[in-house]
Nucleic acid binder design. Structure first.
Length: 425
RNA sequence: GGAGGGAUGGCCGAGCGGUUUAAGGCGGCGGUCUUGAAAACCGUUGACCGAAAGGUCCGGGGGUUCGAAUCCCUCUCCCUCCGCCA
């Protein structure tokens, strides 16, 4: 959510942001409702002021004077009953429209229509060359006996899977490694609720636009999170934080659930697009200074790059173009990792700055030395998400004999194992 | 699931129909003192909308009343006991 005062005085900046993000939000409608709300609110407040002023004197009055005062209050109340329902209706409409307004992207965000227009910032390593015919990750995983998709689909439906044997161990190894790396860099590890209230979904900006992509538990009116960003940011909802306690650096581990509505038939093979996966996510809450949050953004990015470098996975860092940036984000970098079977770099990490977008919705504020209260900035980035990360890991580190070499940094978490060997059938 | 109790400013906590303009404490900020700090003392300090006048906010929503933090209904959450259970 943005500041209505800012929208009011800079509608062209908002409209330009909408254009750059290739969205279609009607700002003029919002502004006209805003004007109407303020007009009607003025009426209502005048009647309320009347009522309050007259009521105050009533206990002191007697007889005819009292009757006159009561009549005046009645007139004010009649006025209120005329305008209050209208105000309420307008305010509801206003709130609804405010939730739709996108955060304008920073000027450094490139123009573009799709991820083909993302701009590479730097890269690590080179696309892997094979002197044999490489297998894709699903073939590898099946021959290594570390996955069972058909059985998962049998009892849980499409886009479901079971990781087994070294696959299950590998996932735990990745998460343990990621958590230890982040903890060593001062991030606070968190295990968080994976079912949340609607408020948290709206507050973090996933609703109302992303509602179709979310699993809903109707009986308890709770939603399954699509990322631990939701609980980690909502954690400080309705709080006023002290400047000395900022920035907050969190790393949360959770399962993530996504309906992937509208993606039928896309990325159906293997580990790329699934209804459920696990992820270590980084979240930062800091003061609302764009320069400070830019420094934090770079920190988030560098953490994930360090992790990918330690794993030895070839990847590139790309600046996401306008159309690829979500409603609330002002800046997004992706880490795209080389996936031989796709013969391209594909997204494994998404690093976002949201400025005040989430903190305004969740009322997360901070108090500075001058006692002034401001909204915070929030940021987030993937540390590692599995099984998607297993695509480049299995594919890039496969050997001609069908085995897969385990990255050295993960071996301590896998009883020293160096390779996963194919199982003979 | 059953029975009771509760939710008040950044935090703790009083108030239970009209000088509440929400007491008091803690914390924050400013000052005195000090080489500096601590302690002590003095002052100051709720959030939101509005250009202002003013208005709104005592968990959310609704109601009673001339007037509600205060009374009634309802929802959510927390605590205690019982039941069930990992």
């Amino acid at each position: 959510m943005l500041d209505i005062a800012f929208i009011r005085s800079n509608p062209e900046i908002i409209k330009e942001g909408i254009r750059k993000k290739r969205m279609n939000t009607d700002i003029d409608e919002l502004l006209s409702v805003d004007e109407e709300v303020r007009k009607v609110r003025g009426e209502v407040e005048a009647f309320r002021a009347d009522r309050n002023r007259i009521s105050k004197d009533i206990p002191k009055l007697k007889g005819e004077e009292k009757d006159q005062a009561l009549a005046k209050v009645k007139a004010a109340k009649d006025g209120l009953s005329r305008f209050e329902p209208e105000l309420k209706k307008l305010e509801e409409q206003f709130e609804k429209l405010m939730l739709m307004v996108p955060n304008p992207p920073l000027s450094i965000v490139p123009e573009g229509e799709s991820d083909d227009d993302n701009v590479e910032v730097r890269h690590f390593g080179e696309p892997t060359k094979f002197d044999f015919q490489p297998k894709d990750h699903l073939e590898l995983a099946e021959s290594l006996d570390i996955v069972d998709m058909p059985r998962a689909v049998k009892f849980a439906g499409a886009r479901m899977y079971c990781l087994k044997n070294e696959g299950a161990l590998l996932e735990f190894a990745l998460f343990k490694f990621a958590l230890e790396l982040l903890v060593s860099r001062g991030f606070q590890p968190m295990i968080v609720p994976q079912l949340v209230r609607r408020e948290a979904m709206i507050g973090t900006g996933f609703f109302p636009l992303g509602e179709e992509d979310t699993f809903y538990v109707e009986k308890d009116d709770l939603y399954l999170i699509g990322t631990s960003e939701v609980p980690l940011v909502s954690y400080h909802m309705d709080e006023i934080l002290n400047e000395k306690d900022l920035p907050k650096h969190y790393c949360g581990y959770s399962s993530c659930f996504r309906r992937e509505a509208g993606s039928y038939g896309r990325d159906t093979r293997g580990f790329y697009r699934l209804h459920q996966f696990n992820k270590v996510e980084q979240v930062i809450i800091c003061v609302n200074d764009p320069e400070v949050s830019m420094v934090e953004h770079r920190l988030l990015l560098s953490n994930s790059e360090a992790l990918m470098q330690a794993l030895g996975l070839p990847h590139r860092v790309a600046l996401a173009c306008g159309a690829e940036i979500g409603q609330g984000q002002v800046l997004k970098h992706e880490i795209e990792t080389w996936m031989p079977s796709r013969n391209r770099y594909s997204e494994t990490h998404s690093c976002s700055s949201l400025h005040e977008f989430q903190s305004r919705r969740l009322r997360i504020r901070w108090r500075g030395k001058n006692s002034k209260v401001n909204y915070c900035h929030t940021l987030n980035n993937t540390a590692v998400a599995s099984p998607r990360i297993l695509i480049p890991l299995l594919e890039n580190f496969q050997n001609e004999d069908g085995s897969v070499t385990i990255p050295e940094v993960l071996r301590p978490y896998m009883t020293g194992m160096e390779r996963i060997e194919p199982k003979s059938k």
